[in-house]
């Protein structure tokens, strides 16, 4: 059982950063809403507030790690130009998708949307984390700020979902391949 270095980096980008962000986002939305709309001061403690600040900061790191690794590590492998006359396009995912009418949409719609919409995620969640860190429980008295913060958090969830869905589907039809092979195990036939 082996994996190539490019496949490993793609896995870290998609599963390590992207999917973890999506998982964290669903929890953050519930917690942010609960925290910001609690009616009594005793509903949330300082410890819970500190925890949520740390949780949001972790999400900020995940979001930036996902877009930076996607844009500057994975995407160059995806969009690499095939030399003229190349018959086997398996090492050139974008060209492979565009060579077949049945898969071209995964690039022209999927990747074209994903590569841009994903960047709304770190912008949104960085703002959310900053405002929560600055205001904390005071947010419950700042109704309009609270609405905007929740709106941006929802948008970051939607944008990350779009990016994650298309990333998974594109990698299914035209996986990023190449690089050194890493041996994971050398199990024999059963």
């Amino acid at each position: 059982m082996e994996i190539t270095t490019r496949a490993l980096f793609t896995l870290i980008h998609g599963m390590g950063f992207g999917a973890l962000y999506l998982l964290a986002c669903s929890g953050a939305l519930v917690e942010l809403y609960r925290f910001a709309t609690a009616t009594a001061p005793s509903d949330s403690t300082q410890g819970q507030e500190r925890f949520l600040k740390g949780y949001l900061m972790t999400m900020v790191v995940l979001a930036w790690a996902a877009v930076l690794s996607g844009t500057y590590v994975i995407y160059p492998w995806y969009r690499a130009a095939a030399p003229a006359g190349t018959a086997d396009l398996s090492m050139f995912p974008q060209r492979l998708l565009m060579a077949n009418p049945a898969t071209i949409g995964w690039h022209s719609l999927g990747m074209e949307w994903k590569e841009h919409v994903a960047w709304l995620v770190p912008i949104s969640i960085t703002m959310v984390a900053f405002v929560f860190a600055r205001y904390g429980r005071e947010l419950r008295n700042q109704r309009r700020l609270r609405t905007a913060v929740l709106g941006f958090a929802v948008a970051s969830f939607v944008a990350a979902g779009v990016a994650g869905f298309f990333g998974a589907m594109i990698n299914k039809y035209a996986p990023v391949q190449g690089g050194d092979a890493i041996q994971l195990s050398s199990g024999g036939e059963r």
């Binding site: 912008i123 949104s124 960085t126 703002m127 900053f130 405002v131 600055r134 205001y135 700042q142 309009r144 700020l145 905007a148 913060v149 941006f152």
Partner: peptide, 11 residues
């Protein structure tokens, strides 16, 4: 609320 509004609008 200025600091929060600044962060929201800038985003």
């Amino acid at each position: 609320n200025g600091s929060g509004a600044a962060a929201v609008l800038a985003a």
